[in-house]
Amino acid sequence: MGILQVNHLKKVYTTRLGGNQVEALKNVTFSVEEGEYVAIMGESGSGKTTLLNILATLDKPTNGEVLLNGRNTVSLKEREVSAFRRDNLGFVFQDFNLLDTFTLRDNIFLPLVLSGKEYREMNQKLMPLAKKLAIGEFLDKYPYEVSGGQKQRAAVARALITKPQIVLADEPTGALDSKSSSQLLRLFGEINQEGQTILMVTHSTRAAATAGRVLFIKDGEVFHQLYRGALTEEEMFGQINRTLTVLTSGGVKNEH
């Protein structure tokens, strides 16, 4: 049993007008082991975002369950959800989602302040993180004063500072230039090496190739998965590309 267990997830949206039903997720089942680094790939409209929103407890599935450390997050009450999200999940988003009313330091502190931690304790937690992420000198700057890469590293610090069970990343390299992208991906690799479980949703083959395992989603189902195993990043890159070609040319479902 993994740290995250997703069972038969189904999500049906009813359009506001006319009552048409759209099936975003049909039947998604997978699990993530502790310390794993998993990438989820799929085209636009494949249901990636819906899946991530459900994992993030921002949305509820029509059917199925999500177990984090054996606890069903789907049945969490509205009141518990925020605290649960704060304590167990870390988020990294494509557009950073930093509040421009806060300095980077305060943005990173935000989840801790919400949980009522003391300033000294927060500061102690921040120092090693800031060093690792090389953002020490920008801490007192505001989001609009720093580059995209620096913003994203601050967002990573915010995700990690609560020591979450799992980090959920949504297209984390989507708004970054190639240099910042590879820097961030290297960082993800290192964090994962230290034992942090990461689940990343991405379009980018380059990003997915750094993961330990890649899940492919198509039309609301897990279509295929690739383990990196002993492959180098370059070999993994090739494998993913081949799979994507099969995926887009309308191949049939198969499992390794």
């Binding site: 993030a56 921002l58 509205e78 009141r79 959800v81 925020s82 605290a83 999200r85 704060r86 988020f91 988003f93 989602n97 930093l98 509040l99 009313t101 935000l110 989840p111 919400l114 915010r158």
Partner: peptide
Amino acid sequence: ERFDIMQKVGMSKIE
């Protein structure tokens, strides 16, 4: 915008 972000970082709607 800020409303959305705060929700994602772990503030409840009521808060």
